[in-house]
């Protein structure tokens, strides 16, 4: 006979085993990427499949940096994501502020027009946007990569929701004391909204870093490629050299994973909070 204490212990062990197993299954593709990036070429083509890299070959990493301008791709992606994030925060903060603190006619309707932009996905507008960017002479420039994403309905919506939670009395008191509206935005609202701005920043940065369709269309020259396009191209150029391709994959994904681990709370809040549009 097993006692109830033993039963409970068994239960705990069973749960932990289940959780660890699930984690391993989910992490499996990431393990394949990392382990392959450390293999010798002979092991990559080995049959049956070599599950553990032996010997470990770190040279794949310097190799991938010498095969393609990976530093340049990383630099491009950092510029692209930083520009988009900063601009989105500025345009969203101004617009959201007007929607909360200025009572103008047609406010509801204009806000609806802003929300409606969330329904227009980039795939639908990609052709005219490409033609427009081409006419501006922005193909293969950072402007072309980023300007179309300098404002989003999502960003405005997210900040508006947050601004509305800050007590209106604070605003009224400040105005009575002679504080101007624009000054209030910078001195009170923005410091108070650090959490929401952080959420928007992390979300925008990550989704820009991971963009694929638009950077593919709007960059032609190698030195203007972003990391995502660079890695996809590496695959076309290197064919079956999976050890170097996976080294590139790890280099490109690591910043995103670190960002995710450090700012998980903000990110989760942004994704879940932004989805409840009701």
């Amino acid at each position: 006979m097993i006692s109830s204490r033993q039963k409970r212990l068994l239960h705990t062990v069973f749960r932990q085993v289940l959780l660890i197993f699930t984690s391993l299954v989910i992490l499996f593709p990431l393990y394949i990427a990392i382990s392959t990036s450390l293999k010798e070429p002979a092991q990559v083509f080995a049959y049956p499949y070599a599950w553990i890299p032996n010997p470990i070959r770190w040279q794949n990493y310097p190799l991938v940096f010498s095969l393609v301008p990976l530093w340049r791709f990383l630099f491009n992606s950092v510029i692209q994501s930083t520009m988009t994030t900063v601009a989105t925060m500025v345009t969203s903060a101004f617009a959201a502020y007007a929607f909360v603190y200025v009572d103008f006619i047609g406010k509801k309707f204009i806000f609806l027009l802003v929300l409606a932009t969330m329904m227009v996905s980039g795939e639908v507008t990609v052709i005219p946007n490409y033609l427009l960017v081409q006419r501006f002479g922005w193909v293969d420039t950072y402007w072309g990569l980023t300007v179309p994403f300098f404002a989003t309905g999502f960003g405005i919506f997210l900040l508006r929701q947050f601004f509305m939670q800050i007590p209106r009395e604070l605003y009224d008191a400040a105005i009575v004391d002679g504080c101007s509206r624009i000054r209030y935005l910078f001195v009170v609202m923005i410091p108070l909204s650090r959490a929401a701005l952080g959420t928007l920043a992390v979300y925008t940065y990550l989704s820009t870093w991971n963009q694929y369709f638009w950077p593919l269309i709007v960059t032609n020259r190698t030195f203007m490629r972003t990391v995502q396009i660079g890695i996809a191209m590496l695959r076309d150029e290197e064919g079956d050299a999976w050890h170097t391709i996976m080294a590139g994959v790890v280099v490109v994904t690591l910043p995103a994973i670190i960002l995710f681990l450090v700012f998980q709370k903000q990110l989760v809040r942004g994704i879940v909070g932004g989805a409840v549009k009701g």
């Binding site: 989910i26 593709p29 990431l30 870093w209 391709i245 994904t253 994973i257």
Partner: peptide, 18 residues
Amino acid sequence: FICTIAVSTAIASVVWTW
């Protein structure tokens, strides 16, 4: 369990192609 939100579709596609 939620870590794949940090992985881009492009990267996931390259890894799964392999």
